[in-house]
Design a protein around this nucleic acid. Structure first.
Length: 346
DNA sequence: AACAGTCTCAACCGCCTCGAG
DNA sequence: TCTCGAGGCGGTTGAGACTGT
């Protein structure tokens, strides 16, 4: 069955939108609301097709869209979700409110994908590109075996995405602690950029462990969410965006970067928030863990709640178990192979 | 300063899904 | 059940910006 293109029409304009066109579209939607895209161009006095209007609105003009550089947490969420879902940009976008699927897709293609390649990882499978195992390749015991099933059997190219052998990407060059003056997005992934980012400094180990701790935190939250033990609708971001307190266990002088386990770090995260909890206890009510964070005022990039995750998981038919294996392995990897992570990138 | 090569990302294209009739 | 159309989705393109020589 063939269908005529939706945007065929005499005199329809293409290409970049002008400020005048934007103004017309915004004005019309403010007055009449979204929907009925096919009729909008005529009613709004635009020589565009309805589809173009919808895209312009949803991707750029909508008032609650967040623009600009992606935060570290956003990057990690994208990478992890991509590892388990593949190029399901709209699914990934649901976990990053205020970001559009188009923006995430672009960011992946121009930044994150290249970074994975630079690190010797296949951006599709998240496995090493070369058959020869690299010195820091995680021990096989760090990852589950290959009985994982594709997250989406329809996508052969993604068939390995959920493999628990997936190597965790280390996006260390985008660590939030890198000063903004040093962080030149243009050069992400370039050798010079890497060298700049990874001068062996006193903060390197600290940063790597922060990465691992945060990854671990994300993993725990996702785990709890999928298990249904994440009771509150607290946000992920509030637990992740804030720097560790000054007296945190992540202070450099107390830190042995190569002997930490994710459990160690998680334990000290718990100390940081002043709670005595057992995250490894399957009976543990995870809401108690995230509760303190939910009181932190301010940012909310997440809106990363249980309902969202569960609806996402159920709608995509992802293998939750394998996804969590990946996340856990990913965070463990960063801790257990922090020396390799460093060497790889320098 | 000029040119060529590279990068970024807004926008487009075509297919898919879903709901209404 | 089938058809049709609106909206959604992911892949791709290309203009403009940027960088290197």
């Amino acid at each position: 069955m063939s269908r005529k293109p939706c945007c065929v029409g005499e005199g329809l304009k293409k290409g970049a939108w002008t400020a005048e066109e934007d103004k017309k579209l915004i004005s019309y939607i403010h007055e009449h609301g979204e929907g009925g895209w096919r009729d909008i161009p005529q009613k709004a006095g635009l020589k565009r097709c309805g589809k173009s209007c919808r895209l312009r609105w949803t991707n750029y003009l909508k008032p609650d869209i967040k623009r600009g550089e992606f935060s570290y947490e956003e990057e990690q969420i994208i990478i992890m979700l991509h590892a388990s879902r593949g190029n399901k940009w709209s699914v990934i976008a649901r976990h990053l409110p205020k970001r559009t699927d188009n923006e995430i897709k672009n960011y992946w293609n121009t930044h994150l994908k290249k970074r994975l390649i630079d690190q010797g990882l296949d951006p599709v499978t998240h496995k090493p590109l070369s058959s020869k195992p690299s010195p820091g390749t995680p021990k096989s015991s760090d990852f589950q075996d290959d009985d994982s099933t594709p997250s989406n059997p329809d996508e052969q190219s993604q068939s390995d995405s959920t493999s628990a052998k997936s190597l965790p990407p280390s996006s260390s060059c985008n660590l939030p602690e890198i000063s903004s003056s040093e962080k030149t997005p243009k050069n992400d992934g370039s050798l010079s950029s890497k060298k700049r980012c990874f001068k062996r400094s006193s903060s390197t180990s600290k940063l790597l462990n922060k990465v691992a701790a945060r990854a671990s935190s994300i993993g725990k939250i996702l785990t709890a969410s999928m298990e249904g033990t994440l009771m509150s609708s607290t946000t992920l971001s509030s637990s992740l965006n804030d720097e560790f307190p000054e007296n945190s266990q992540f202070q450099m002088d107390q830190f042995d970067p190569f002997s930490q386990s994710s459990e160690y770090i998680t334990d000290h995260m718990k100390e940081d928030i002043g709670m005595n909890i057992d995250l490894n206890n399957p009976e543990y009510d995870f809401s108690q863990f995230v509760e303190p964070f939910s009181h932190i005022e301010g940012e909310n990039i997440g809106g990363y709640n249980q309902d969202l995750l569960m609806s996402d998981v159920s709608s995509t038919g992802v293998d939750e178990e394998n996804m969590m294996r990946d996340i856990t392995s990913w965070s463990n990897y960063l801790v257990d192979h922090s020396d390799f992570t460093y060497d790889l990138l320098v």
